[in-house]
């Protein structure tokens, strides 16, 4: 099966922690054709879909979006403003 390489950027409470410290970026190899929804599930993001914004190339994408090779994907727990 074909795979692609992507970079996932985790924001605020979607970030994870390891013994080495805060994890805000993950380099992943995923199967070609996987969707953002599947990716979110795989990463065990502790938020409902409606509470997350997923941004690729400065644009919001839907759960059906299929990442392309070398995509930089931002998983952003949504907030209203600052």
């Amino acid at each position: 099966m074909e795979t692609i390489r992507i970079v996932v950027h985790l924001h605020t409470i979607a970030q994870k922690w390891s013994e080495e410290g805060r994890i805000d970026k993950i380099n992943l190899e995923v199967k070609d054709g996987c969707t953002i929804s599947e990716l979110i599930k795989q990463l065990d993001i502790p938020l409902k879909w409606e509470d997350i914004l997923v941004v690729v190339d400065q644009k919001t994408v839907s759960g059906d979006y299929q990442p392309q090779d070398r995509d930089e994907i931002h998983i952003i727990p949504a907030i209203s403003g600052g």
Partner: peptide, 15 residues
């Protein structure tokens, strides 16, 4: 946890 400064990543993410 992050205050209003949770926002830079999001606003920058949208360019």
């Amino acid at each position: 946890d992050y205050g209003t400064n949770a926002m830079p990543g999001m606003s920058d993410g949208f360019g």
